[in-house]
Every structure is written in structure tokens, then in C-alpha cells.
Design a protein around this nucleic acid. Sequence first.
DNA 1: TCTTTCTTAGCACAATCGTACTAAGACCGT
DNA 2: ACGGTCTTAGTACGATTGTGCTAAGAAAGA
Lengths: 205, 205
Amino acid sequence: MRLDHDERRTELAEAVWRVIRREGVRGASVRGVAREAGLSMGSVRYFFGTQDELLRFAMRAVIARAEVRIQAGSADRDKLVAQGDAGAAAAQLLEQILPLDDERVADAQVWLAFTVQGTVDEGMAKIRREADEGVRQLCEKCVTDLAELGLVAIDRDRGVEIERLWSLLDGLTLHILLDLAPPSASRAGQILRTHLADLQHPIPS
Amino acid sequence: MRLDHDERRTELAEAVWRVIRREGVRGASVRGVAREAGLSMGSVRYFFGTQDELLRFAMRAVIARAEVRIQAGSADRDKLVAQGDAGAAAAQLLEQILPLDDERVADAQVWLAFTVQGTVDEGMAKIRREADEGVRQLCEKCVTDLAELGLVAIDRDRGVEIERLWSLLDGLTLHILLDLAPPSASRAGQILRTHLADLQHPIPS
DNA sequence: TCTTTCTTAGCACAATCGTACTAAGACCGT
DNA sequence: ACGGTCTTAGTACGATTGTGCTAAGAAAGA
């Protein structure tokens, strides 16, 4: 069955994630992943012809999980925007992106490892760029939704605000992953809401 | 001469940086670094008894470079604060932290690689935490200086603002390194100044 | 039950890894 | 010129790496 085949590949991807969290991308050798998955080396090679193919699949699988999470509350958020509360919609969306529970922390750890590996591996860099563009568009949508409802001051440079929001999100994510300023998970949401509140008010000057 | 000895160690650290930028921490093997430095394997081992020692030294050397850069304009900034222009002082300091030229981008690339390696290597994690605490204190000083001059609204939670600024800095750094939104280097400064301006005005209502 | 296809296991190969060790070279005070 | 210390080079060892290849086992349709 072809279904079993894909399920196996996903199981192997999950084994890759566990190994990466424990030993880094360095430890994600074919043998290491096989051991983690309880399979032999030859079996892994049956499902993935090469190590690169294995790692790229595992990387894309992280993206797929994130997309599912983001898609989940999509309808609710659209309703909020239609009701004029784009601020609440933005908060709900962006809190989905931040790693605020263990599962998302685990995913983000793996993603960060792949991201840095992409500094050296052009194949991974390409995958990362596609995913990052997706996040950027989400940030853009948040700012645009707010602006179209007149909730963002006109004197704001929208491009600057989009990239500021985007950078803040990635910085918060990094800080949560590195466990900086201990109560990060709960405080990250507070920081995000403060930022969105700022965005919705003009600079008095 | 003991001086030559330390100079050699620094040369080897620089070789480590180049290898890491080109091939990642993965490629920073004893052999690889020796080849990059134009030395034999045995020579590297003479200056560093173990690979871990070599990499840790190279990591601390990145910190040392950053400290020199930050220390450089220190007097000027203190003068600005004394004159009541804490905003200009903050902008000058924080722009030193961002990788806005090639040299600092190179350093930040290496630092990021070490940082992620620290996810798996407790020794590196310790070094990273010390350095991160230093950056946090710089952010704290910026916010505190502004607040003591009455330039920050009282209704701001200072802890939140410190970590928001800190996260934004790290996020901007990451985006510059990953080359997101092409004209990042020039735009990063603009984003930082926008953020500092926001910080200096109360949230109306 | 036989046969064909799908999975799994295991070994072999060359390459690379970190470390230990030895010996030859360079340099310097005397 | 000599003696001793500081540097460098080179080699060897066992372990691990990615990949190619072969054959045994499982599953399923005839």
C-alpha cells in the first residue's frame, strides 16, 4: 500500500526530529535515525534514497505541521476581521505562530536547526525561504487588515511595520527556544499584545 | 614567546570562523581548521588539547570582538545621556549591536552557528548565556536611561519593554543574517529608530 | 500453494573523524 | 657552536560516516 509507505516516511521524519533535538543536525546520521526509529540502516535507505532526501522531507514535514495549526482558526479570524476587530484576529493568529506550548517549542527547535543548516546547505535554504515568505505574508495580512479598518495611524510606514512585527516574532521565538528571561512563554504573549496596541495608535509627536 | 602563542590561538580561532561560515560547525573539524589555517593537524593540537577547547576559544573570541565594538563609543554615549538625549545614545548603542556591515555580519553568522550548537552542547550553552545576559543588560540600560529622563511613559511595563526591545534586536539580526527582505541592513536601522520613537511616547487612551 | 512484489536486514567500501604519540625542525640564551 | 625549549609535521588507531549492493523475510494475489 502506498499509504503505508508515506506513513513510514512520516515516522522516519519524526525520528529525525527527535534525534535533532537530542543531538543536533550533526547527529541526524542515517544510522542514528534508523536506530531512533527502530529500523535498520537498509530500511531507511529504502524509503529515502539519500540522506539529503531524508532531511529535506523532515524539514518540509515541520512546515506541514505549522500550516495545519495556522489553518485551524482561519475561519474564526476572518469573522473577527469582518466584525471590525482585526486586532483580536491578529493576536490570535500571531500567537499560533509563537511556540507557546511544548509541541510548538519542539517543532521550533527543529526548525531553527534546519534554518541554520540552510546557511550552508542551499537545498535547505530554499525550503526555508519559502516558509519564511509565508510567515511574512501572515504579518503583512495582520498589518493590512488593521490598516484597512483605519486602526493603524497613516503616518506609519507600512513596510517598516510589517518587518518590525515579523522581526519581533522571530526574536520572541528565538528567546523562548533559548529559554531567555525564564517566564518567556507567558510573557511573550504580553509583549506581542503590547506591540499590537502600539501599532494601533499614532505617534503623538 | 607567550605572545606568539596567544596570537597563534587567535589565528586558529579566525580559521574556525571562516570554516564555520563556509561549511557550518559540522565542517569545523580539527583537520578542516588545520587546513584552513595552513597548519598541520598536530600543530592545532599543540595549541588546543582538544577540539572542544578550540571551538570554545573561537566562540569566546567572537564575544571579545563584540565587546570591543560596544566599548568603543561608550564615552560618547554617556555624554549624550548626560545632555538629556538618551534616545540618541540608545540608537547609537543598539546600532552597534546590529550586524550592519560585512564584518559584523560575519561575526553574527558564526555566533548564530555557535548559539544553535549550544542547544546540544552544554559547554557552549553556558558561554552563550553569559553573552546574552550582557546584551540584555545593554537593552535594560537603554530603557532605564530613557525612563529616568522621563522620556518613557509611566504606563509602560519596563520589563516588557526591555524584553520587547531585546527580542526585536535579535529578530532583526536573524533577518539580516538570513537575508530576508533584501535591503535589510539599511532598513533595520529605520525599524530600530521607529521602535525607539514608539517607546518614548505614551499609548494614548 | 506458488509466485510476485514489497520490506527489512546486513555487510562492504572508501572516506572522515578525534585523539595519541613520536620525531624532526626552529629558535634562543649561553 | 652547543643544549634545551618551543613548534611543527606526520603517522596510526579505532570509531563513525554515506552509500551501494545482496539476500532473506513478509504479504498478497493467482
